[in-house]
Simulated assay, not measured.
Amino acid sequence: MGRYGSLDYARLTKTGFLLGLGVFALGAGGELAGNAFYGGLPGWEHTLFFYAEVLGLLIGFFSPWVFGILLPLTE
């Protein structure tokens, strides 16, 4: 039993990265599909999809750093 309990760092790293990738793909795909099918989207939808893209990138970037490097080193 480690400092943070019995965490599976490899699974958390992979899951976090794939979650970030999925959120990014949802934002980018929604933006592209919305513009292709409906022409112009309202401003709040552009903002929503943009935030999803940014959040997906942040989750996908920081998840391997936190769960793959930082937490195992502090264990």
Rank of each mutant, 00 (worst) to 15 (best):
F61T: 08
F37D: 00
G2S: 08
L26I: 13
G29D: 00
G16W: 05
W44R: 07
G56F: 07
L70K: 04
L57P: 06
L71M: 11
R3F: 08
F17N: 01
L73S: 11
G29I: 01
F49I: 05
L18S: 11
G34C: 04
L55P: 06
A36G: 03
L32G: 00
G5N: 14
Y4H: 13
N35W: 11
V54W: 12
T15S: 14
G16T: 02
L32R: 00
T13Y: 02
Y4C: 01
A52Y: 01
T15Y: 12
T15L: 13
Y51N: 10
A33T: 13
Y51W: 12
G40W: 07
E45V: 15
L21H: 02
P42I: 14
N35K: 10
S6T: 14
S6I: 09
F17G: 00
Y51G: 02
F49A: 06
T15R: 10
G22T: 10
W44G: 00
G30Q: 02
F61H: 00
Y51P: 03
F50M: 11
F50E: 10
I69V: 13
W65T: 03
W65F: 15
L32I: 14
E45N: 07
R3K: 14
G20C: 04
P72I: 08
V23P: 08
L21G: 14
E75K: 12
Y9K: 09
L19T: 15
S63M: 02
T74E: 11
G34E: 03
M1L: 14
V66Q: 01
S63A: 15
G43I: 08
F61V: 09
G34S: 06
G39D: 05
T15H: 08
L57N: 05
K14C: 13
L21W: 03
L73F: 15
N35I: 01
K14N: 13
L55H: 11
I59A: 02
Y4L: 12
I69A: 02
L7Q: 10
A33G: 08
F37C: 04
R11W: 14
G27L: 04
I59S: 01
E53K: 15
F37N: 03
I59R: 00
F37Q: 03
T15Q: 13
G29R: 02
G34Q: 03
L57H: 00
T13C: 05
R11G: 11
F49S: 06
P64Y: 07
G2V: 01
G20K: 07
Y38S: 14
L26R: 05
L32F: 13
G39M: 04
F24P: 01
E31H: 07
G56H: 07
T74M: 12
A36I: 10
A36E: 09
W44F: 12
E45Q: 15
E45I: 15
H46E: 10
P72M: 03
L12N: 02
G40L: 13
Y51F: 12
I59Q: 01
L58D: 08
L73N: 11
L55I: 13
E53L: 13
A36H: 09
